[in-house]
């Protein structure tokens, strides 16, 4: 009897010990999980991922206008444009903007003039098929971003600074969208366009970009 009582007491002691160990183990696991969770939550809060967008051709436009005989404006647009934006709301300097315009897609509502513009006296689209902008520096300003970047047209790359106004993002039909607008003035002579071809069309062209980006 005494021996069996002693064994029972030993079993109870072992059971109590193992229960307490299990409880400790579980509590430890909870602690680790909580720590991991905290780390994740805190990490997310301090470094939100940059928002990635692609250029929405349907809801965007890259148009331009140039003086004709210094009395009126000729308007045109580029129909084939591609681009992507990365917007870091926390640290705007990490944002980036890229735009690639297919020069061949120039459209001034007159086929003969478009054909003329594609030729080497103007855009020389067989030699320089694209017009490109690649941002190198982004700074947040009131109502948008000040973006400095390399603008390449007609084989000449120049650093330009544009004010991209907008940047408000909304969710529409499950797609996150952001919109920007800007206007820049370029001199064709700065991009080595044939000076003889400048003639009746003014040297300066105003480029108007209204673009919408869709989240990928």
């Amino acid at each position: 009897m005494q021996q069996s009582d002693r064994r029972c007491a030993q079993f109870r002691q072992i059971e109590v010990l193992s229960r307490s160990n299990l409880a400790m183990l579980i509590s430890r696991l909870f602690q680790i999980n909580a720590l991991l969770l905290m780390t994740l939550v805190c990490g997310t809060a301090t470094a939100a991922p940059a928002e990635e967008y692609v250029y929405d051709l349907v809801h965007s436009s890259v148009s331009f206008k140039a003086r004709h005989l210094d009395i009126s404006w000729i308007h045109g647009r580029f129909n084939e444009v591609d681009g992507k934006f990365s917007i870091d709301r926390e640290d705007p300097s990490k944002s980036s903007f890229q735009l690639t315009i297919k020069a061949d897609s120039v459209d001034t509502a007159n086929a003969a003039r478009d054909e003329h513009l594609r030729q080497p006296d103007y855009f020389d689209t067989k030699q320089f098929p694209t017009i490109e902008f690649r941002s190198t520096k982004v700074k947040a300003i009131e109502g948008g971003y000040e973006v400095t970047g390399d603008f390449t047209m007609h084989g000449v790359t120049r650093s330009i600074t544009i004010e991209l106004m907008g940047g408000k993002a909304i969710e529409s039909r499950g797609v996150r969208r952001v919109g920007f607008s800007t206007e820049l003035r370029l001199k064709r002579s700065d991009y080595k366009f044939d000076p003889k071809a400048i003639g009746p069309i003014g040297d300066e062209a105003i480029v108007i970009i209204d673009c919408e980006g869709m989240s990928q």
Binding site: T100, K102, Q127, P129
Partner: peptide, 15 residues
């Protein structure tokens, strides 16, 4: 030289 006629691939995938 350097024209689209001698381009097999382009970065933008346009030509």
């Amino acid at each position: 030289f350097g024209s689209v006629h001698l381009q097999v691939e382009s970065d933008a995938g346009l030509w």
